[in-house]
Write a protein that binds this DNA or RNA. Structure first.
Lengths: 96, 96
DNA sequence: GCTAATTATATCATATATGATATAATTAAT
DNA sequence: ATTAATTATATCATATATGATATAATTAGC
């Protein structure tokens, strides 16, 4: 009836990562996380660094990082600016 | 060579309206104005007043009015809340 | 026209986004 | 492994979004 009692750090990390993945998947359902994922994807596809993107739109690398972290609630204007820096158009609409 | 010198108030108003329409058309190209127009349309189609919508999402009528006026820069969260009040999903993405 | 309902505007308090700088942590290149 | 480049985190100052209340203006029903 005994399960393993000692737990390696690797096991812990694996567990943490699983939780993290679940959490991120959960979060990815929300529009703000979807748009952020899309922005990161496009930025990297274009071979842009955060700093380069920041320069293009007149802000700082740390602010791009903050946006991409998904830890806050950006304004429409800011998203529009970033979209422009990626040579994309921001589209916002209602579905359902 | 003379054009009409006296100008009626109606003429002025017509001119102002024309400018206003042009301005609104110009503004409507921007995503924030598109989404706002869509929200107003859906709200009225659903027969909801600003107050009713406000109550549903825990804010005040004046704040809905402010949003619908298009005179400021809403956050993604706020748009999401309003979308939810309209039983819709907010969709944000990059095009182009 | 009068009244009620709805929407718009003004204003204040507060929370929070944004810009900016510094620096830590991570990743890439050699 | 070291160094350089990139990204993440922390923090501060400032601007602005949001909630709230009051009231004006507009619109709808009668």
């Amino acid at each position: 009836m005994n399960k393993k009692i000692t737990t390696s750090w690797e096991d812990v990390k694996k567990e943490l990562l699983k939780d993290s993945a679940t959490y991120k998947e959960y979060k990815s359902l929300e529009p703000e996380y979807r748009i952020i994922s899309q922005m990161i994807k496009i930025r990297t596809e274009q071979g842009l660094t955060q700093k380069e993107l920041a320069d293009k739109i007149g802000t700082k690398q740390s602010n791009i990082s903050r946006l991409e972290s998904g830890e806050y609630n950006p304004s429409l204007e800011f998203l529009k600016k970033v979209a422009k820096g990626l040579n994309k158009e921001l589209v916002v609409s209602l579905n359902g």
